[in-house]
């Protein structure tokens, strides 16, 4: 499990980093925290000829909150998010989701940019980005482009990133006060990738009806996904047990998970419904009648 032969460079500026990527064509790979890439190299599932370490690039390590949204530099780590006291208020859904990511050694090194670029279907950050309509900033040889999270991920472990592009930041829209939300996931052991997970939020209007519902899932498809059918059920309704059970039933029908060594498809489908019920009940602060 040794890495294949490769070179390593550690540029000081973004321009240099992009130039290096461009110079090696498809044979260079960005390395950030290395928590996903290094295992792939060790298993020789990836064999780039050079690693371009972006760890020294300036300005990619900040979390800033402004009227435009909450910006996460690509090199922000899970630990940075956990330690940022503002986020419990500024984006409680994100804070709750990121609490489930991996174990502390990995949390010290893994980055939001790396997680987005790696695009594991069960990863929390891409799930939150898709659920919350995050905007991603990508820099390449020809300049900067902004991509919506749901367009960024194009399939299992694949994104729109070109070989010579770097993801520099992720912007989450501002979080509304008094928003109803919950994050639920189920993993075999604490810190493992989830078998399934649900991120949910909605706002409440003056009549006490839900609007702006966002329901996102991880672990049940080749990429994180939204459930517009479920969101449509919630919008304009008072969230009670009936609505929740109806939403969960629609959610179960809306997904088509695959069998794998960890769970049969039917389990994931049902699990996702259970998690959605629990998430919505918690968001609405109601107790569902106990199922057997």
């Amino acid at each position: 499990m040794k890495l294949p032969p490769l070179d390593y460079i550690c540029p000081a500026t973004l321009t240099e980093a992009i130039a290096a990527l461009a110079a090696y064509g498809g044979n260079a790979k960005v390395i950030a925290g290395g928590q996903s890439l290094v295992p792939m190299l060790a298993f020789r599932l990836a064999a780039p000829s050079v690693l371009v370490d972006i760890g020294r690039l300036p300005d990619l390590k900040n979390i800033s909150i402004s009227a435009d949204g909450i910006d996460f530099g690509a090199l922000v780590t899970w630990r940075d998010i956990e330690r940022d006291a503002r986020l419990a208020q500024a984006h409680p859904l994100l804070a709750a989701a990121i609490a489930h990511v991996a174990h502390y050694q990995i949390r010290n090194r893994g980055t939001v940019g790396g997680s987005m670029a790696h695009a594991d279907p069960a990863a929390e950050m891409p799930g939150i980005a898709v659920t919350c309509d995050a905007m991603l900033t990508i820099v390449g040889p020809t300049g900067t482009r902004i991509v919506r999270a749901n367009e960024f991920i194009t399939g299992g472990l694949s994104t729109v990133l070109g070989a010579d592009e770097i993801l520099t930041s992720i912007r989450l829209p501002l979080w509304k006060k008094a928003r109803r939300w919950a994050f639920e996931e189920f993993a075999r052991r604490r810190g493992d990738f989830a078998l399934a997970g649900v991120a949910a939020f909605y706002d409440i209007d003056a009549q006490g009806l839900a609007y702006n519902a966002h329901i996102g899932l991880i672990g049940v498809a080749d990429r994180p996904m939204r459930l517009p059918g479920v969101e449509a059920i919630l919008d304009g309704r008072r969230i009670d047990a009936d609505v929740i059970l109806q939403a969960a039933a629609v959610a179960r029908d809306a997904v088509d998970p695959a069998d794998d060594i960890h769970a049969e498809a039917a389990y994931r489908r049902d699990l996702l419904g259970v998690l959605l019920e629990r998430a919505l009940a918690r968001a609405a602060d109601i107790v569902l009648p106990e199922a057997a």
Binding site: F186, L195, A263, E264, Y267, D270
Partner: peptide
């Protein structure tokens, strides 16, 4: 006794 196995038995 994995969660999916117990779930399957219950179902």
């Amino acid at each position: 006794l994995t969660p999916p196995r117990l779930w399957r038995l219950i179902k």
